[in-house]
Design a protein around this nucleic acid. Structure first.
Lengths: 230, 230
DNA sequence: CGACTGTCAATTGTCGACAATCGACAGTAT
DNA sequence: ATACTGTCGATTGTCGACAATTGACAGTCG
């Protein structure tokens, strides 16, 4: 995904982009809660910048679906309803299925070994009980699947969906208790890919995704991560 | 899609949004060619506004994939390669297939009649030889399919893809000579939906989309709509 | 002659100030 | 009391000016 190659490098992104990164992280990590208002002057002051680059950043985030900008009324972290979550996971399933089809069509052993490597890392982390790391590698696995599909537009679309999935997971801290089980869920999918068995691979993947989505969506309204102010 | 209800209404969108609309239309209609640089001061002067709302608009468009912003280097209308087009149409196919599945799952006769109405309008336009109108209604048909699927996130994702498809079609003026044929292509899909025959409907739809995409992609490099300056 | 360095114009990035808009609340007439 | 109207503070929207960065070109040294 990220390859610098060059050992010497200093970040020189425009302020706007660094602001996007900071705010995105705050939202996706659950630090900023859904519904929370983002007052421009407050945040600008807090970051020690003017409102111009902040506003450009907010425009960007709004198209990523992380915030909602209402003209003359302000910006809030986008509320997350149960329907949103169902939509999120169902679209995610569609996108990943598409990626999976393309990966299988390539029939490239290198792809399989990369996925397998990822799985093994996840398993290792699971066995040491490092839940956070398992989550990270799990994300990496699905990102890898998208990346291997070699479809740029898909990757862009995915990144938006993926971000919000991550947000949902951050807000619902810890559902699945057995992290070794989580890791092992991925193995049969890889095997199916290795055997070029598209039908099985798709079935397994969709089940994998929808089970996670259903689990979260079902319980959502019971503790919808109370909205708050900074 | 758009329903005012209220007969009295004046547009009071922020400048930024009106700028987005204007620029988007210019790009999507092919008036602004891929690769064309968009110099902020020029455009701001031309529109009689300052650069601030223009820049916010450009941020927005960049996330729609219509322009490419390079820090300190400026903004250009996003170049369109053959690969882009293939990706566009393949993802479009995936999204519409998903919508189609959801529409069929609803098993609602109202949906079918709406689609049929759309088809009939298209056919009528085709028979009077109004090519432009046929194209408009064709777009409407596919938008309707997405809308009927009642999936907001899908709709948002679709709108981005849809815009760029429209741009491609504008740049390649007129390929398919027989517009009555175009209209009639939609009928069997509707019939399959009406009969709840998901398999057939999907097959037909995917063929419908990919045939259009292949046709355009194949010829793309031969006349890639020469890049230009204002 | 070739490679490196310094300068410059063009363009984008950022800022602070001012204008426009909104929701809320107080005030008034019936 | 109630419905309408006017005013106000808070917040967003827009502007013009200034700072920072880039690529290109000219100049210099070996």
């Amino acid at each position: 995904m990220t390859q610098s190659g060059n050992p010497l490098h200093i970040e020189n992104k425009p302020l706007r982009e660094r602001v996007v990164d900071v705010l995105r992280e705050a939202i996706v990590s659950g630090e900023f809660k859904p519904g929370q208002p983002l007052v421009e002057m407050e945040i600008a002051a807090q970051l020690g910048i003017s409102r111009a680059p902040l506003r450009e950043a907010l425009q960007f985030l709004s198209h990523e679906g992380l915030v909602e900008v209402t003209p003359y009324r302000g910006t809030v972290v986008k509320p997350l309803t149960r329907i949103d979550i169902e939509e999120l996971y169902s679209l995610r399933s569609v996108l990943e299925t598409f990626a999976l089809q393309r990966v299988i069509a390539q029939n490239n052993p290198v792809n399989v070994s990369k996925l397998r490597q990822c799985y093994e890392d996840m398993l290792a982390a699971a066995q040491t009980g490092d839940r956070k790391q398992v989550n990270n590698i799990d994300r990496e696995f699905h990102n890898l699947l998208i990346e291997l599909s070699q479809h740029n537009l898909l990757a862009v679309t995915w990144s938006t969906v993926s971000l919000r999935v991550r947000q949902v997971m951050a807000l619902r801290n810890r559902i699945n208790p057995d992290i070794v089980q989580i890791a092992n869920n991925h193995l049969p999918i890889i095997d199916a890919i290795a055997q070029n068995d598209e039908g099985v691979a798709i079935t397994l993947l969709q089940k994998h995704i929808s089970s996670a989505g259903d689990l979260i969506a079902e319980l959502w309204d019971t503790s919808p991560a109370e909205d708050g102010k900074a």
